[in-house]
Design a protein around this nucleic acid. Structure first.
Length: 424
RNA sequence: GGAGAGAUGGCUGAGUGGUCGAAAGCGCUCCCCUGCUAAGGGAGUAUACCCCAAAAGGGUAUCGAGGGUUCGAAUCCCUCUCUCUCCGCCA
């Protein structure tokens, strides 16, 4: 959610952002400004009427205490008559305020000036590339490798739950667990505080990060208790500080949180989502920051680097994309995607996306901080995966595959596989 | 799951129809005093929103949430949610 004052001040800037994010119709801005004007007029009128009523009520109290019953009765008549008007105005104010809020929710975040303008993924800028694009005929893609060697059991996953809920078995399970611990430990070393979070959230939290009402279909639900299974740790961790006010000295706050993630991913089947490429349940280590607005773009680079270094340390080839305005998403101001090279599939797989939301999320969740001059303002929030597990797994299973059907353990992980240097 | 108690500001906690956005204490901020430390004195200290170019200032709303009674509700009534205690069950 943007600051209404900022929208009023420069509506053209917001309209341009809407267009650049791929929505040609900018009328929502004008509708909002119109609605806001009406709302402010109404609330002003209402406030004044209430003030008048409050004064009269106090007078009635005084008159009664002074024993002037008749004068009190007269005043009662007056205020009694005004009640209807107050009710009407209250109803009008409520409707306008709801309409205003809904319109505000439809306005996307404004991209940072450093973000390239573009409409599709082809306009994203490859900002950095690391490592070779291995291409060797004998390497099996991770799906064939896993099925042949029994590392990941997709079929039993289907039997037990459904498509997209695989079992990791033996060496694959151990590798996954090693990666999780490695990612968390690295983040801790780099100044993040570890959180273990609930895997279900309530409605308020789902609303806080904007999962509802917009992306409701993305989440699995627990109807009986009105819970939502988290699609990412971002949801519980961002909501961790909902409705809180920090002092300036408390910032920045850095959190790392490992959770499974559940996504319904409706309607996506085919080659692209084969194997571990896209699942309904997957594991992810998430990094979340609450920062002073002055520092948020520096923090974005740090966050991105915190995620990137994991890929380099694992010895995987990857590239960094600076997402263009049209491919960036509704809530971000600036976003990098990190894609790892899959030698078996000969394609890039997205394993992290690191975003600065500026105050867009914080305003909606009421996460604020008190500046030195006493003013209260929303913080800036950022998050990024560090990293999403299955695709990293896929890349490792392919990149470190040995001809005899085993997998060499990346050096940094040996510590986490109980000293084993080869799995399988 | 059964029985009971409760929900007030950063925290503890008072307040049962008007002068209550709310006593008191703690905490925090600033100032004064004090040759360190300790102690003491004074002032300030919720949030959102509206009016105002802005500051100053003024106003409205909020005492778990929603509705009701009343000229007037933290206080009375109804509904819901949550928390705590005891019992049961339990990794």
């Amino acid at each position: 959610m943007l600051d209404i004052a900022a929208i009023k001040q420069d509506p053209e800037r917001v309209k341009k952002a809407i267009i650049n994010k791929g929505e040609p119709d900018t009328s929502v801005v004008d509708t909002l400004l119109e609605t806001d004007k009406n709302w402010r007029e109404t609330i002003h009128e209402l406030d004044q009427l209430r003030a008048e009523n409050n004064t009269k009520s106090k007078m009635i109290g005084q008159l009664i205490r002074q024993g002037k019953k008749e004068e009190a009765e007269e005043l009662k008549q007056l205020t009694g008559r005004m009640k209807e008007t107050v009710k009407e105005l209250e109803e009008k104010e409520k409707q306008l305020s709801e309409a205003r809020f809904k319109l505000m929710l439809r306005i996307p975040n404004v991209p940072h000036e450093s973000v390239p303008v573009g409409s599709t993924e082809h306009d994203n800028v490859e900002a950095f590339r690391h490592g070779d694009l291995r291409k060797e005929e004998w390497i099996k893609d991770h799906v064939d490798f896993c099925e042949e060697n029994g590392w990941v059991d997709f079929e039993r996953g289907v039997k037990v739950t459904g498509a997209g809920f695989p079992f990791y078995k033996g060496p694959a399970a151990r590798l996954q667990r090693a990666l999780i611990n490695y990612f968390i430990d690295q983040a801790i070393e780099r100044g993040y505080t570890e959180l273990m979070a609930p895997y279900f959230v309530n409605e308020d939290s789902a609303r806080g990060t904007g999962q509802i009402p917009d992306k409701e279909d993305m989440m699995y639900t627990v109807p009986r208790d009105n819970f939502f299974l988290i699609p990412t740790a971002e949801v519980p961790v961002s909501n961790f500080h909902r409705d809180e006010i920090f002092s300036e000295s408390e910032l920045p706050l850095n959190y790392v949180c490992y959770t499974p993630c559940w996504r319904r991913e409706a309607g996506s089947y085919g080659k692209d989502v084969r194997g571990l490429n896209r699942l309904h349940q997957f594991d992810k280590v998430e990094l979340v920051k609450f920062v002073d607005p002055d520092t948020s773009y520096d923090e974005l680079e740090k966050l991105r680097e915190d995620a990137e270094h994991l890929l380099r340390e694992l010895g995987l080839s990857y590239r960094r994309l600076l997402m263009c305005t049209g491919d960036m998403g509704f809530t971000q101001s600036k976003k990098y995607d990190l894609e790892v090279w899959s030698p078996g599939q000969q394609r890039w797989l997205e394993v992290s996306s690191c975003s600065n939301f500026e105050s867009f999320q914080a305003r909606r969740m009421m996460v604020r901080y008190r500046k030195k001059d006493g003013k209260i303002e929303p913080v800036h929030t950022l998050n990024g995966s560090g990293l999403a597990l299955p695709r990293v797994m896929a890349a490792i299973l392919e990149h470190y595959q040995l001809p005899e059907g085993t997998v060499r353990v990346p050096e940094v992980l040996v510590h986490y596989t109980g000293g084993l240097k080869v799995l399988g």
